[in-house]
Write a protein that binds this DNA or RNA. Sequence first.
DNA 1: AATGAATGAGAATTCATTCAT
DNA 2: TATGAATGAATTCTCATTCAT
Lengths: 210, 210, 210, 210
Amino acid sequence: MTPLCKRWSRRKEARPQEILEAALAQFVQKGFSATRIEDIAREAGVTRGTPYLYFANKEEIFKAVIRELLLPQVTLAAERVADFSGCAAELLRELVQIWWRVMGETSLSALPKLMIAEGSNFPEVMDIYEREFVLPGQQLFRRVLELGIASGEFRQVDIDQTINVLVAPIVMAMLARCGNVPCGQMAADPDAYLNAFIDVTLGGLLARPD
Amino acid sequence: MTPLCKRWSRRKEARPQEILEAALAQFVQKGFSATRIEDIAREAGVTRGTPYLYFANKEEIFKAVIRELLLPQVTLAAERVADFSGCAAELLRELVQIWWRVMGETSLSALPKLMIAEGSNFPEVMDIYEREFVLPGQQLFRRVLELGIASGEFRQVDIDQTINVLVAPIVMAMLARCGNVPCGQMAADPDAYLNAFIDVTLGGLLARPD
Amino acid sequence: MTPLCKRWSRRKEARPQEILEAALAQFVQKGFSATRIEDIAREAGVTRGTPYLYFANKEEIFKAVIRELLLPQVTLAAERVADFSGCAAELLRELVQIWWRVMGETSLSALPKLMIAEGSNFPEVMDIYEREFVLPGQQLFRRVLELGIASGEFRQVDIDQTINVLVAPIVMAMLARCGNVPCGQMAADPDAYLNAFIDVTLGGLLARPD
Amino acid sequence: MTPLCKRWSRRKEARPQEILEAALAQFVQKGFSATRIEDIAREAGVTRGTPYLYFANKEEIFKAVIRELLLPQVTLAAERVADFSGCAAELLRELVQIWWRVMGETSLSALPKLMIAEGSNFPEVMDIYEREFVLPGQQLFRRVLELGIASGEFRQVDIDQTINVLVAPIVMAMLARCGNVPCGQMAADPDAYLNAFIDVTLGGLLARPD
DNA sequence: AATGAATGAGAATTCATTCAT
DNA sequence: TATGAATGAATTCTCATTCAT
């Protein structure tokens, strides 16, 4: 049963996915240009020619990683993130934590690194990224902020800018998870980091009792 | 024979610097691997062979960009950032604003992007970056936090983690300045963004009067 | 389980022939090197692996096309061409017309194109071609010329060279039939072309009455 | 003076021409697809990379061979061919002989072989070939035929078809010169072949005295 | 017998680097 | 100093061929 002496095994259905996962790992580690097709193939356990059975060229592999591996997860994740209730403060806390669980702790955390590093070489992908990841993410925070301000729970703040203030530390945590982003403690204990983040931020948003 | 056009006056001392600046621009735009020596040469107004008169190879150009172009500025910038006084809240505000002026609005803003994108391919550079940029930056915030907590101005917070919470939005703003990092409003009006950041963060740090 | 669709009835004996015909069509269209095995397979209605059940490799397919598909037809054709009678002028006319019918208008017309294009890459095939196609063809014309000269019907001409003068326009017509040989009118109306050819040539061969 | 120990010599002006000539030789010998860039490079005395300094890719080399090496010669040759006078018979004789000298005996003789073998893979080149080589060539013969018929020197013949009858043997001689086109005697003694051709053809065209 | 996924040798192309000028 | 033609190693990509199914 074990393919010990087999030269290869046929995995038509699984292959594309396997190749994309291997490609993701390599792209995150080395960047697009520095990743050789052979690196991807080896990581996927196949040989040089196999990726070309499923993808036209290296660029298409990159696009497929984003479009077929990462963005579909974004949608799934977004649905779960959108599912919460409570007062604005609880919502914010929950939003950050769910986000982290479904985006930060999964392979999705690679997305910001890839786009920062390679986005300018793939403008179309960048557009998709903005449309399907950045904007929806901002919307989630916008909703919470608007809710909190409307209910008087939060102070009046510049919503457009505050959104980004809230997003930044989470994205940084995602970047830190990709390794080799030097923010020592952040990567070491993400939960402590996120708690500190929620603590400070929520403190800054809540309307003073007086 | 006489130097007809002034612009061709040989500035041999200036050449290496010019090449490094050209290289920085290209590396930020395209990444290390995707940047061809000829791209750098053209941007610097010289031809293919010239960079090799001053640098051993492409890798050394990258290292020189970090070591000779960016990190010395970090030191200069750090000195100016360190020069402030007042209460902790004022210090924090001032720290963020000076930082932005000396790092965010200059070519130094390229540093985080380069290290995120290429750091894993240049571990030694990464080390230097951490030692000479990340740690000193964290120290500045640590000092402010410690000061504020000691004086009772700030709440008791987890200093190690809060440092990173404070650094993250500034680094994100630096990334946004490198172009093609999709955080719309942030890049459009950095000052408004930084104000929102200080506003929320300071609110979150200040001890409640009650 | 029962052969639902008749068209899938296995014609194992027919397969090699079908593959060779597909190969011929592709080789004529694209040339040997530019033809992929998959092109041949698709044209034959089979898949990549099937040609290898019948032929060792691509080169053997080429040789088989010549040896097994074309040259046997040459023999058949030559027999029919050899079967004629009458005075030398009639013989010549008949020879040209039968040749055209059995070689020009059939797949045999591909042979000269293949040999011109690929002959130098297949010296052994070239030898066979010369031995089994060129020489026999020349012999036919030699016979007619010798007959006509002997009977006084034709002028004394340099037989060896005149043979080639007679063969050339027929071969050109065969080339023209393979498409993409730019001799407009020739391919458009081969009969008119061959009549003009016989008309001029015969006029040039006949001994003047005076 | 002799570059014995030089790794290479700089020949910016001469290189493209040298590469095209090398390419022509290789394409004629092996065909386009079967010719490797390295074959061309070696024949030109350079290394793999050098052709790419002057041509974008192999296809462009092929096109340049036709457009820049061969067709300009066609123009030169056509001018010399057009320069003749005398009665129609003399004109025809002269036309064939000059054509042979300026096209058959030069590298131009490669043109028909290249177009027969590769034309269908390069339709645009085929069009140029037809426009700049085939049609002008046909015009020359048309002129002679029209002249001869008008003057009563030649019989009434189907001009459109007869043109091709006249062209065919010359083109065959050009093909034979490219080697490996199996028409034994033709290539061995082209002059004898052409004389036989003129002899027969002219005999067939001249109006009978009676 | 036939399939078609997988292989891997080989060809095209790129580009960092050298060095004669 | 600077140039840029030339090199050749490295990489992408193709496709003839194999072989488990």
